[in-house]
Computed example of a mutant assay.
Amino acid sequence: MKYEKAANPHAGHRQRMRERFQKDGLDHFQQHEILELLLFYALPRVNTNAIAHELIQQFHSLSGVLDADVLELKQVHGISENAAVFLKMIPAVCRQYQLDKMREHLVLDSTQSILDYGKAQFSGVEEERVLLMCLSESLELQHCETISKGNTQSALLDIHAVVACAIRMRSRQVILAHNHPHAAAEFSDADLFATQRLRQVLRSMEIILLDHIVIGKSGDAVSMRQLMGWTD
């Protein structure tokens, strides 16, 4: 007697997932399903459903997975180095996508536009950075440069680096920005003191510090110009 081979209930699963995404996007995907779909392209012959569930269990959320470093990801059973690097690339690619969409003829003529650009610059960045934005006379962004990485307090005191960048770019209007990747957006007393000192030095060179913003870990943002009521 011949027995028919039982149909594999998982046959075509990947194709169905891809078709579902193409039809409706990711809005109705659960977090583990998004990871499962992503991992199709890093682990082509592996059941990524179980791995996706384990990633969520380990790091608690999709953002937690994507914020984890490569070594942490590789500790999850089934995650190869290629898969870990692939997942780690996703926030960086999203950041570059956001910046590229904003880059052409970007005018920073309002607090909201400055905060929006700052959020895009620091999206997915896990280390503390200090950025200087150099603007034209019409407030169009000419250049954005990382002044320093690591310890924000000491970086803010590096007035020479700020001045050198502004002079090199021939910019008379600049904006300072830094991030708190592991804390809320708020200015310390040291931030306020260092910024006031920097404003004085720049003003003596006929360079205006238009604002100093800080971006927090959850995308919250604060403008020192608004906080302190700057009028120039």
Rank of each mutant, 00 (worst) to 15 (best):
Ala92Trp: 04
Cys94Thr: 04
Ala120Tyr: 00
Leu108Trp: 00
Leu139His: 06
Arg103Ser: 11
Leu38Arg: 03
Ser80Trp: 02
Leu43Val: 06
Asp116Val: 02
Gln96Lys: 05
Glu81Ile: 06
Val65Asn: 13
Phe40Cys: 05
Gly78Gln: 02
Cys94Ser: 09
Leu26Met: 12
Leu55Glu: 10
Ser63Lys: 14
Thr48Trp: 03
Gln75Met: 05
Ile114Tyr: 02
Met89Ser: 14
His77Pro: 01
His32Cys: 07
Asp27Arg: 13
Glu36Ser: 11
Gln57His: 12
Glu54Thr: 15
His143Tyr: 14
Glu137Tyr: 08
Glu140Ala: 07
Met102Lys: 06
Ile34Asn: 04
Gly25Cys: 10
Val70Leu: 11
Ile79Leu: 11
Asp69Glu: 11
Ser148Val: 09
Val46His: 10
Ser80Cys: 05
Asp109Phe: 02
Ser138Glu: 13
Lys74Asn: 02
Cys94Trp: 00
Leu66Trp: 07
Val70Gly: 03
Leu135Pro: 06
Phe40Arg: 06
Ala50Gln: 13
Leu141Met: 11
Phe29Val: 04
Val76Ile: 08
Ser138His: 06
Thr146Glu: 15
Ile79Lys: 03
Pro44Ile: 02
Val93Ser: 07
Ala92Asp: 14
Leu66Asp: 05
Leu62Cys: 08
Ala42Asp: 10
Ala50Arg: 12
His143Val: 05
Tyr97Gly: 00
Glu128Tyr: 02
Tyr117Ile: 00
Gln142Asp: 08
Gln98Pro: 00
Gln30Leu: 15
Gly78Asp: 03
Ser123Gly: 05
Pro91Phe: 01
Gly78Tyr: 00
Leu35His: 05
Asn47Asp: 15
Val70Lys: 15
Gly25Arg: 07
Glu33Cys: 02
Glu128Arg: 12
Glu33Asn: 04
Glu145Tyr: 08
Asp67Tyr: 07
Ala52Ser: 15
Gly118Thr: 01
Leu37His: 12
Leu132Val: 12
Gln75Leu: 05
Glu127Lys: 13
Ala120Met: 01
Leu108His: 01
Leu39Gly: 06
His77Cys: 01
Leu71Trp: 02
Leu39Met: 13
His53Tyr: 11
Gln142Arg: 14
Glu127Cys: 08
Ser113Ala: 15
Phe86Trp: 08
His105Met: 03
Leu35Val: 05
Leu37Cys: 08
Asn49Ser: 13
Leu66Lys: 07
Ser113Lys: 15
Gln112Arg: 14
Asp116Gln: 10
Leu132Gln: 12
Arg103Asn: 11
Gln30Ser: 12
Cys144Ile: 15
Met89Leu: 14
Met133Tyr: 09
Gln75Phe: 00
Ile114Pro: 06
